[in-house]
Computed example of a mutant assay.
Amino acid sequence: MVISVAATSIVDAIATDLRSRLFAGEITGQMPLTETDLAASYDVARPTAKAAIERLVGEGLLVRGAHKTARVAELGPEAVRDIYLARAYLESEVLRRLAHTRTVPTDAVIANREIAEFTDGSPLDLVEPDMRFHLSLIDAMGNERMSKMYRSLVSEVRLCMTRVQGLNLLGPGLIHAEHQKILELLREGEGEAAALLLDDHLGRARERLVEALGGEAGPEARVPDLPPAEETHLDHG
Rank of each mutant, 00 (worst) to 15 (best):
L159R: 15
N112E: 13
G171I: 00
G218W: 06
I175C: 11
E128V: 09
G166K: 10
T162K: 04
I182H: 07
T8N: 01
G191C: 09
R163K: 14
L135P: 00
T28R: 15
P172S: 12
V94N: 13
E78L: 12
H201W: 02
G215S: 08
E207K: 11
A7D: 13
V164S: 08
D199Y: 08
E178S: 12
K148F: 14
G203Y: 00
G166W: 13
P224V: 02
L234Y: 02
L183Q: 06
Y89P: 00
G218D: 08
A177E: 11
H236Y: 07
P123G: 04
E26Y: 04
L197E: 07
L38C: 07
I10C: 13
A6E: 12
N168I: 02
A217V: 00
L90I: 14
L135T: 01
G191F: 06
Y89L: 09
I138Q: 11
G203I: 00
A66H: 04
A52E: 05
S92K: 12
A40K: 15
V109H: 09
I10Q: 15
A217E: 00
E78M: 13
R163F: 05
S20I: 07
P77A: 04
F23P: 01
L197I: 04
E59L: 12
S20C: 01
A24G: 05
R87Y: 04
Y89H: 12
I115Q: 11
L137M: 09
E26V: 02
T28K: 13
E231Y: 02
A221W: 06
F118L: 02
Y42T: 07
G58A: 02
T103K: 07
R97A: 03
D82H: 14
D199P: 00
N112Y: 00
